[in-house]
């Protein structure tokens, strides 16, 4: 069966100053998401993970262009859709939860209005059935006494509550895929846990697929089934989540894992030398080579191709870390 979403060789560039500056934010990204699974997209700021998400829902900023590639949602290529057709897809088949959920509620509309909007437009619900649907959605995200709460305005709710409203809005159009772009970045840890558990429960109940964009490997470990690690606009490694944590193949993935403090263990941390790359002036060869300890002459000249050492996932590296070495 075809996957729910298949992105193949997607390239999205930002062009500025009359073409004098091209930022290759997404440069040949391919991945697929099966129905009901959670795919993690991990990377540091400026690696292109947010641009990838915006490209999928065709909401790039005016200077951004999808240069090539295909984005197939249930077999339909989204790149070929008009904006009018995309409007019928966004919210109905793909929903998004943005980086700052606190800012994604409009202070001038009641909770009811905001949760009802996608259901009104995309599910054509009216009157009593619309009301019923909103109640169900609020109950699903565990808003206590939804009947009373839906007349409230965003400022009357606490942060965690607003967070859950955003989750309810994402669900309202009945999407098959939700793209969550760093949805918990500014949250306290206990609220973050509540929210992540809520997303998991929703997923279990509705079978929706999730694309989880984050820089936090802890969230990946908790939430994701499969992970793509992005660096400088490319997915440098893709694996199942266990594979990634136990058998990281790309030196960047390994370095990222080693640079995080682990609870209750006082080992020296590994710091990745150098700076995250400037996407408008990338080094030749493998973009990671200036920061890579294993880099050879070949890495400095020739860009590594994507290959799969043993079936599970793939890696873009001339010298991927051997399994035994990774364990030791």
């Amino acid at each position: 069966m075809a996957p729910l979403l298949r992105v193949s060789d997607l390239r999205a560039h930002y062009v500025g100053f009359g073409g004098t500056r091209v930022v290759k934010a997404v440069d040949g990204v391919s991945f697929s998401v099966e129905a009901g699974e959670t795919f993690g997209l991990v990377g540091e700021s400026g690696c292109g993970k947010t641009t990838t998400c915006h490209a999928i829902v065709r909401l790039l900023s005016p200077s951004g262009r999808i240069v090539s590639g295909r984005i197939e949602l249930e077999g339909e290529d989204l790149v070929k859709k008009s904006q009018a057709e995309m409007r019928r897809i966004r919210g109905r088949r793909i929903a998004t939860i943005l980086q700052d959920p606190m800012a994604s509620l409009d202070p001038l509309f009641s909770i009811y209005d905001q949760v009802a909007e996608p259901a009104y437009y995309h599910r054509s619900l009216r009157g009593r059935s619309l009301r019923q649907r909103v109640m169900e959605l609020l109950a699903a995200v565990r808003i206590p006494s939804p009947e009373r709460r839906m007349k409230d305005f965003p400022h009357q709710l606490s942060g965690g509550m607003r967070q859950r409203i955003v989750g309810a809005i994402a669900q309202a159009g009945g999407p098959r895929l939700i793209i969550a772009d760093e949805p918990t970045t500014n949250l306290d840890v206990t609220i973050q846990l509540q929210y992540l558990n809520l997303l998991k429960d929703l997923q279990r109940a509705t079978g929706v697929a999730l694309i989880f964009v984050t820089h936090n490997l802890g969230i990946v470990a908790k939430m994701c089934d499969r992970v793509g690690v992005m660096y400088a606009g490319k997915i440098v490694e893709m694996q199942s989540v266990r594979g990634l944590f136990y058998r990281a193949r790309h030196p960047y993935t390994k370095a990222l894992l080693d640079s995080i403090p682990k609870l209750g263990v006082r080992q020296p941390l590994y710091g990745i030398p150098g700076q995250p790359p400037d996407l408008s002036a990338l080094p030749a060869g493998c973009a990671f080579h200036p920061r890579c300890q294993r880099a050879t002459d070949r890495c400095r000249v020739e860009e590594p191709r994507q290959h799969s050492p043993n079936g599970d996932g793939h890696v873009r590296c001339w010298l991927p870390i051997e399994e035994a070495a990774a364990r030791g």
């Binding site: 840890v189 609220i191 846990l193 509540q194 490997l217 802890g218 470990a221 266990r242 609870l263």
Partner: peptide
Amino acid sequence: KALFAASLPSHPDESREEIVLSGEV
């Protein structure tokens, strides 16, 4: 305890005592 339970695992098979706090501060 709840803070520790809520802090994210460092790998996928790390098992934690699950204490999910209800409500907010």
